[in-house]
């Protein structure tokens, strides 16, 4: 995957290259200079410190799967990484690249949004950290400036009283492009929903949080009825298109099905 600058006519960061190499060769044009972030050893690795998980921009999808700690601190990301493309792509593609390519169907973004992740952007003039929620501004657009490099992704280690789930609905099981991707995160405090994050993939111009669905749950005692209402809210907030994989109508239905299912599973696992 790539971390491609928005207006990069001359320079672009190259992650694993599993998207950018194909794009460059299909169009016959590419940036004059590629910075191979994927090979910068300093940017590869997973650290867990002070209740925060941080992964460098060169960390691959396989790195996520092969680090036994990840099941504790980001089980939902592991779930997603597990159904991400095929082995060779997982060995090459970076988590950062999956964010930077900006695809609305990017599989790793919903779980990262569910985990409440932030990204670190670095340029010659300094470094800033922005929440992944709000990072995307539209179809393949983001707040990252052309001279900024996405160097790290981080999220808080989930608390014990929390659960999260991811599901990828594809037209086949292996190596598929997502029709609908949903990830949820719920934490409970005193019997009511404390933090709720619901992230939706492939049902809008970019991967998005359904704030309306989250608001339905927030501060309420979970119930089947409440979950159904949240799922309805998420469906209402989604704006999927028709494409070769599925109709918008089906996608909307599936947002309902999957949000409901994943919230139910998450909450059941906490009870």
């Amino acid at each position: 995957m790539i971390a491609k600058a928005k207006t990069a006519n001359d320079v672009a960061p190259l992650g694993g290259g599993t998207n950018l190499v194909v794009e460059m060769r299909a169009s016959g044009v590419g940036p004059a200079t590629l910075v191979s972030v994927g090979q910068l050893a300093g940017l590869r690795g997973i650290t867990i410190a002070d209740g925060t998980v941080t992964i460098g921009a060169a960390t691959t999808v396989s790195d996520i799967l092969r680090d036994p700690r990840m099941k504790q601190v980001a089980a939902v990301l592991v779930e997603s990484a597990d159904v991400f493309a095929g082995q060779m792509i997982r060995n090459t593609a970076t988590v950062a690249g999956n964010i930077c390519c900006g695809s609305p169907a990017a599989d790793l973004v919903p779980p990262l949004l569910a985990l409440g992740a932030s990204v670190t952007l670095r340029s010659g003039s300094g470094e800033r950290t922005v929440p992944l929620d709000g990072y995307f501004t539209g179809y393949k657009t983001s707040v990252r400036k052309p001279d900024e490099l996405l160097t790290a992704i981080s999220w808080p280690v989930p608390t014990a009283k929390s659960a999260s789930r991811f599901y990828k609905l594809g037209r086949r099981r292996g190596d598929a492009i997502t029709m609908v991707g949903v990830s949820v995160f719920v934490s409970l405090k005193d019997g009511v929903c404390d933090t709720v994050r619901i992230a939706l993939g492939a049902v809008g111009p970019c991967v998005m949080r359904s704030k309306k669905a989250e608001a339905v749950m927030q501060g309420k005692a979970p119930s089947a009825d409440l979950i159904a209402k949240a799922a309805q809210a998420a469906t209402a907030e989604s704006t999927p298109i028709d494409d070769i994989r599925a109709s918008g109508e089906y996608r909307k239905e599936q947002v309902q099905v999957l949000v409901q299912r994943l919230l139910t599973q998450s909450l059941e696992s906490l009870s």
Binding site: G17, R25, S36, S62, M88, I89
Partner: peptide, 26 residues
């Protein structure tokens, strides 16, 4: 030539990659 089939897989230091998606320079 798009990473969709795996026929071109090779090992780089023992790790399988699609050679069609790997720029030789990297």
């Amino acid at each position: 030539e798009k990473g969709d089939c795996g026929a071109c897989a090779v090992l780089l230091d023992g790790m399988a990659v699609d050679s069609c998606l790997t720029l030789t320079h990297t």
